[in-house]
Amino acid sequence: MTFAELHHQHTPLVIANVWDATSAIAAQQAGYQALGTSSAAIAAMLGYEDGEAMSFDEMLYIVTRITSVSNLPLSVDVEAGYGSNADEIAEHLKRLVQAGVVGINLEDSKVVDGVRRLVDAQAFSRTLEAIRTRLSAEDLQLFLNIRTDTYLLAHEHALQETLYRGRLYKAAGADGIFVPCLTSEQDIAMIAKELNLPLNVMCMPDLATFGRLKQAGVSRISMGNVVHSAIQLQLKNLLERILAQQSFAEVFIDESTR
């Protein structure tokens, strides 16, 4: 199946969000169908804050290392596109396609002075349409999964704003809609029905089971940076125990015996 076709299965497409070659290999060995990068995890790995603090070239290098070790379809989180206009963003997406990437996440918010805010929906949709037009003109195939941060930023009218933005983005050429922090099954069902686009939700503590999400209309489930964060916490705890015990014995304990 193509990457687009993976969004129309009997069960949701569960994306393994990775941040380097090692995590990509682990996800492939575990049996995942597709990979997605986590911008927050990659930024953390490189010592940056999330929100395009790292350069596009730094992110692209990590992408090339992932594609070099895995043959799974790869979607890349490009945040707000690493550009100030449609031409700059489209050029970045072209380089990603050349690196073997089949999809991207592009978000309708930006971090300015440490604060994330939604951008104007009309302006964003015009940018998206221009990007789609340029990609089509160069016959570049890329699944555009458009992220709206209405729920992430706790918009006062999150459902209505998501529907408004989703309709604009669909008309501008979006292939899918990604709504992080959306957990209400009622809202999920409404958004999936009204937009009629593959709907992507993200791991949250109160997110329903995958089966229930599929019944509500979800096509794709992302992990975000939660797996990377969990591993970093385990690493920190292990390093602390080595110092506390003044021994490396803890390193060699079989996890299955814990």
Rank of each mutant, 00 (worst) to 15 (best):
A244Q: 13
I104D: 11
V119S: 07
V201L: 10
D108C: 05
G83W: 00
T133G: 03
A27G: 04
I188P: 00
F56H: 02
Y48C: 02
R220G: 01
L93D: 10
E52M: 01
G166A: 12
V226C: 10
I89Q: 02
P205S: 06
L118A: 04
L163K: 04
N71I: 06
Q29L: 09
R134F: 05
N237L: 06
A34F: 07
G51A: 00
E88P: 09
I25R: 15
F143Y: 15
N71R: 15
L182V: 09
W19D: 00
G114W: 03
K193M: 06
N105E: 09
V111C: 08
Q141I: 14
L238S: 06
T2S: 15
D120E: 09
R117A: 12
S38E: 13
I146G: 03
G173P: 14
L35P: 01
L46S: 11
A4R: 12
D57F: 10
F252V: 09
A53C: 15
S70D: 02
D113Y: 08
E185I: 14
R220Y: 05
Q98G: 02
L195V: 10
R167M: 14
F143K: 15
T22P: 00
R134P: 06
E88D: 13
S222P: 15
D108H: 07
S75I: 10
D206G: 04
T127Q: 15
L93V: 12
A171K: 12
A4N: 13
L140Y: 13
A86I: 11
I89R: 01
I253C: 09
S184K: 06
I15E: 00
G81I: 07
I231N: 03
L152R: 12
S23F: 02
T150L: 07
L182S: 05
Q141F: 04
S38C: 10
A41S: 11
L243G: 13
